[in-house]
Design a binder for these strands. Structure first.
Length: 298
DNA sequence: ACTATGTCCTGCGAGC
DNA sequence: TGCTCGCAGGACATAG
């Protein structure tokens, strides 16, 4: 399932391949749940626009596009850009293809580029979502929340959470203050941290030596320090290896990642712990399969 | 304000 | 061998 490292890999790959290209045509399937914005809006906004950049925010791929001049409204200042948001859900793929490549089943959107290549969104399980985010001043300022007296800013689509690769230790520790939920559930909560999913939550907790069931508020400062370091390390290493291909994840060129070979607990139920040989245990926590070493994780 | 649980969706693998 | 059935999970809705 695409989490931060997988989404980062895909966004970087797509960016390198299509940045600067113009979108000449847009096709969408008619699977309504895939489209958070109306299909007609997505098609009309993207058609004729130029791709400025593709990047990752949390688990979302953000394609910034410069709008076709004819679509700009003359009166209240031209909206220069918009953002095409692609959330891959469980099984979503974003592929840069040449036109002769066969169109995969469950293809829900195809953006044709001015050099005839295509950006295709494929998603068998349809947990993915496509939408247009209009970047106007009103929405920029709307992303303000008050939390324990402090104000925090965030982009309208990004939500209130922090990027795990950018957050300071103090802010990281503060996320779990007074939180009675299990630490793993807190790690998965996107309004606390962006981009951590089931694989990297399990892997980071193993590397930090912390049981996934421990109540977040009861984890010591020292352990949280270890957890942050473990999370950063595991995410960075996974990005370096092109992500984890556990179900059907592939990058923008359809190439699999390699981090699954480095998993220490995820989907290793019954196999010996790489540190102490104790069989890895599996349980359900927060509705998710959860893997841990009963010896190494306290 | 938090927290927990159900729902969506299809492919795949376990089990008979 | 061929079939059925349960499981996989990110985000959101809803309930407590």
């Amino acid at each position: 399932m695409p989490e931060l490292p997988e989404v980062e890999t895909i966004a970087n790959g797509v960016n390198a391949r299509v940045r600067g290209r113009r979108i000449t045509a847009v096709w969408t399937s008619s699977k309504p749940q895939t489209f958070k914005s109306p299909e007609t809006e997505i098609a009309s906004t993207l058609t004729g626009s130029r791709i400025e950049s593709v990047r990752r925010v949390g688990k979302t791929i953000v394609m910034t596009i410069r709008l076709e001049p004819t679509l700009r409204s003359a009166k209240d200042g031209p909206p220069r850009t918009a953002e095409f948001l692609i959330h891959l859900g469980m099984t979503g793929r974003l592929l840069v293809c040449t036109p002769e490549m066969p169109v995969a089943p469950h293809t829900h959107a195809v953006l044709t580029l001015d050099d005839a290549r295509e950006v295709r969104f494929v998603d068998p399980r349809r947990f993915g979502r496509l939408s247009i985010h209009h970047t106007d001043a009103a929405e920029e300022s709307a992303g303000t929340i008050t939390k324990s007296g402090r104000q925090q800013k965030f982009a309208g689509y990004a939500g209130p959470g922090s990027e795990p690769l950018a957050i300071s230790l103090d802010d990281f520790v503060a996320l779990f203050h007074n939180r009675r939920t299990p630490i793993k559930a807190a790690l998965l909560n996107q309004s606390l941290l962006h981009g951590v999913g089931n694989i990297y939550a399990d892997e980071a907790l193993f590397r930090a030596g912390i049981r996934p069931t421990r109540q977040a508020a009861r984890i010591s400062h020292e352990e949280l320090k270890k957890l942050r370091a473990a999370l950063v390390a595991v995410l960075k290493q996974a990005i370096k290896l092109g992500g984890s291909s556990v179900s059907d994840y592939v990058d923008a060129d359809g190439v699999r990642g390699f981090f699954q070979l480095r998993h220490k607990v995820y989907q290793r139920t019954g196999e010996p712990c790489r540190a102490c040989r104790t069989p890895i245990k599996r349980m359900t926590l927060a509705g998710r399969g959860t893997h841990f070493c009963p010896t190494c994780q306290k």
